[in-house]
Every structure is written in structure tokens, then in C-alpha cells.
């Protein structure tokens, strides 16, 4: 019986989603000192954007995917303008409250537009999965793991190997110093918001075929991502990833 590897497989799959959302979470904490309680809603909006594009407007999946990600990045900028920008000199708490407000607003807006029934979003691949050594590999979980690994690698390359990445890092470490060095801090913060929203949206799209698309999906995911952050050490990037994976695995084994 393949109980242990089967549970490990799904645990890592679901943990990868938590890690992706936790990553978006951490980046905002570091770059803008914002604990964003609407991070889960980014995932929910990303998934709904895909539902609208691919199911409603009939855009092919692989065309709809980049459009949805770009839309989410744009939304991240709007979100920053509405919740962070006006309150950025007032300290952390008002911004946190404003993200909580935004989270409630976004969830209820989607509820009003779409109703409470969950929607179905097809997976990346037509095949449900395949079996390897008695372990059933759900194709969507495989896609989640591969994408998560690719995103982590991409993020590493951007942050460590490009000038933009260095500027973003400088901003997150010390905004005052960064601005003295001529780095456009405001632009860097906006880029972080855009990236964070795109990452959250991608996580939502990836997990939608497994968990379905519903108004409540954001809350479930963000709660877990928040826990992943705490487990991995608040504000630590590798910690968020490890925390997410650990949470996914513990959750799956815990149910057994």
C-alpha cells in the first residue's frame, strides 16, 4: 500500500500553493512593511478572472492565463493606490486595517456579481493524472509543483542577478537609504504590489481546478499562507516557502 508516498505527494502539492501565496505576502511585508490581509483575495480574483476569460468569453486557456496574470499585476497597482498610498505615512496599523477592509469589499463585490455557487475551472491538462509506483499523480498537482519551483527560480534570478532586483532588495532593506542612492522607492513599492498580486493570482488559478473557484477560497488560502509565514519566521522568504510546504504536508498527514 502506497499510503505514505501518496500523502506526501498531495501534501507537497497543496503546500506549494501555500508557499506561493506566502511568498507574495512576505514580499509586501519586506518592501512596504504592509501585512496584506487581502492576499487571499488576490488568488480569488485571479481565479475569477480566468473563469470570466476562459469560460465566459471563450478565450483559449493558454492565452487567457497570461492575460489574467497581467490583469492581476495591474490590479496590484490599483490596490496599492487605494489601500497603501494614502496611508503610507500613518504607520502600519491603518494600512493593515485598510487591507482588511479591502478584503471584505473584494469578497462581497465578487459575491454580488457572481453569487455564492462555486465555479469550475478546467485544469492545465486534459488528463486527470497518471500512476507511478502505486502513487496517483494528479496532473494539476504536478503542474502546481513545477510552476511553484519555476517561480521560485525566476524570483531568485530576478532578485539576485538583475539591477531591478537589487533596487527592490535595497528598497525593502532601507527605504531612506535607497532613496538617497537615487532609487525610485515609490516605483519599487508599486512593482512589489504588482508582482505580489500577480503571484497570488497565479496561485489562485493553479489551485482552482483542485479547490474550485468560490468567494471563500481567498480566506482559506490566505489563512494558511499567513500561518506558513509565522512558521517560517515572519518576513523570511525561504521561511515562507518551507513553512508553506511543511503546512501542506502536516495537514495531509494530520487527516490520516
Amino acid at each position: 500500500m502506497s499510503l505514505v508516498p501518496q500523502l506526501l505527494f498531495t501534501g507537497v502539492g497543496i503546500g506549494a500553493i501555500y508557499a506561493l501565496v506566502a511568498l507574495g505576502f512576505v514580499l509586501l511585508i519586506r518592501a512596504a512593511s504592509v501585512v496584506n490581509f487581502a492576499q487571499g483575495e488576490f488568488s480569488m480574483l485571479g481565479a475569477y478572472a480566468m473563469v470570466v476569460l476562459s469560460s465566459l468569453l471563450g478565450v483559449p486557456y493558454w492565452v487567457a492565463l497570461p492575460i489574467a496574470i497581467v490583469l492581476m499585476a495591474g490590479f496590484g497597482v490599483l490596490f496599492a493606490g487605494a489601500t497603501y498610498w494614502p496611508l503610507r505615512h500613518r504607520g502600519q496599523l491603518p494600512v493593515i486595517i485598510s487591507t482588511i477592509g479591502a478584503s471584505i469589499f473584494l469578497a462581497n463585490t465578487v459575491l454580488a456579481l457572481y453569487g455564492p455557487s462555486p465555479e469550475v475551472l478546467p485544469g492545465l491538462f486534459d488528463t486527470p493524472g497518471f500512476e507511478v509506483g502505486g502513487v496517483f499523480m494528479d496532473s494539476q498537482y504536478v503542474a502546481i509543483m513545477v510552476t511553484a519551483a519555476a517561480m521560485l527560480l525566476l524570483q531568485f534570478l530576478i532578485f539576485e542577478k538583475t539591477l531591478l532586483g537589487k533596487k527592490l532588495q535595497a528598497t525593502s532593506q532601507d527605504k531612506e537609504m535607497a532613496s538617497l542612492l537615487g532609487i525610485p522607492v515609490a516605483l519599487m513599492v508599486l512593482i512589489t504590489f504588482a508582482y505580489s498580486a500577480a503571484l497570488g493570482g497565479l496561485a489562485g488559478i493553479l489551485v482552482a481546478p483542485v479547490l474550485f473557484v468560490s468567494v471563500g477560497m481567498g480566506t482559506i488560502i490566505s489563512l494558511k499562507a499567513f500561518a506558513a509565514n509565522i512558521i517560517g519566521g515572519f518576513g523570511s522568504i525561504p521561511g515562507a516557502i518551507l513553512g508553506g510546504l511543511a503546512l501542506g504536508i502536516v495537514e495531509t498527514y494530520g487527516a490520516a
Partner: peptide
């Protein structure tokens, strides 16, 4: 819960020939 692998495996290993269920939420 986001994942039911453990529950499904428990059903599979129990050797049951019929499943009865009480689910609250459709998702």
C-alpha cells in the same frame, strides 16, 4: 479541507463495499 487523500485512502483500505456520506458543503 483542501485535500481528502487521507480520507479516501482510509475508505480504500477499510475493505468497505458501500459508502454512506454526510457532506455539508458541495465544494
Amino acid at each position: 479541507a483542501s485535500d481528502y487523500t487521507a480520507v479516501v485512502l482510509a475508505v480504500r483500505q477499510s475493505g468497505a463495499d458501500i459508502l454512506g456520506s454526510y457532506f455539508t458543503f458541495e465544494n
